[in-house]
């Protein structure tokens, strides 16, 4: 009876193994080390700065980040935080970064739509005024907003890094529809596009062309601008953008866990002391 129980339990755990995606396949994200992983992880400020540059110079042409304000770049844990400016809105480097970008506004006298340089209190501007415009410029596909993308995809930053650095030539026998690109890390079902031998390759067709290229972004700190570096840095930046409070959360958590351990220990000692003379 017990043995049967164990067998059933083992079967149960085996069910956990596969992803619940039916015929959809994809390569598992590459196993990468992040500075912010684990209970004591922190963001690497230099990496966040490089990642912002990649976003600003490459991705922002098509992808909005509607939940991000320029002032977020200067907040504690952010890429351009400066202790001298506890209110990130005052941070002069943030202001200068913002000034380079034009945002839409209304002329307060005439009511006309105008463009003006952004300030730290402004949101990151969206490259397109609305969804139909975004789709029209991208062959019908909508480039997703990147504000929380690192939390909105299974695999998080590892998935983003793998996707960006993992574009491959489509294997012979795979018919790639026009306007699409093969990526082994993008979930898809390629069985109906495959005429080669054996099972269809893993992965899917993504509408985004490979966005990164060697030396496409010049890093101010002199880091080599390989596709892997750019992909890694922008993935870390996107993780920060999705969870700007991560470092604060882990810090608070350490204190909370230690405090709770002490409190629980004391409660256990009290419990034992109270129950000492009662047979139970």
């Amino acid at each position: 009876m017990l043995r049967k129980g164990f067998a059933i339990a083992a079967l149960g755990f085996a069910m956990l193994a596969g992803p619940a995606l039916g015929a959809t396949t994809f390569e598992e994200p590459k196993d990468v080390h992040w500075s912010f992983e684990g209970p004591f992880g922190k963001f690497d400020k230099a990496q966040l700065q490089r990642g912002y540059k990649v976003y600003r110079e490459v991705c922002s042409a098509c992808h909005a980040m509607n939940l991000m304000y320029f002032r977020n770049l200067g907040q504690p844990g952010g890429p351009f935080y400066d202790e001298k400016y506890p209110n990130p809105n005052d941070n002069p480097y943030v202001k200068s970064l913002a000034k380079d970008i034009q945002v839409g506004d209304i002329d307060s006298e005439t009511g006309d739509a105008i463009k003006r340089p952004a300030g730290s209190a402004d949101k990151f501007p969206s490259p397109f005024p609305n969804e139909p415009a975004a789709r029209a410029s991208n062959g019908g596909a909508l480039p997703p907003d990147l504000s929380v993308i690192a939390k909105a995809r299974e695999g998080g930053p590892a998935y983003i890094y793998s996707l960006l650095s993992g574009f491959e030539e489509a294997p012979a026998g795979l018919t790639v529809p026009p306007g699409k690109h093969y990526n082994p890390y993008y979930p898809g079902d390629l069985s109906s596009f495959w005429t080669g031998k054996g099972p269809a390759p893993k992965g899917g067709f993504i509408s985004m062309p490979p966005p990164l290229g060697p030396n496409k972004v010049t890093f101010d700190d002199g880091s080599p601008s390989t596709v892997q570096q750019q992909a890694k840095d922008v993935s870390a930046f996107l993780m920060w953008a999705a969870e700007p409070k991560m470092e604060e959360r882990k810090r608070f958590g350490l204190g909370a866990m230690i405090y709770l351990l002490i409190l629980t220990g004391l409660l256990y000692a009290s419990y034992r002391a109270i129950w000492r003379n009662v047979s139970h």
Binding site: Y259, L263, L267
Partner: peptide, 13 residues
């Protein structure tokens, strides 16, 4: 002492 310490830590929490 155990009870007082526990109470204090709980209040702190």
């Amino acid at each position: 002492f155990i009870y007082i310490a526990t109470g204090a830590v709980a209040a702190g929490a």
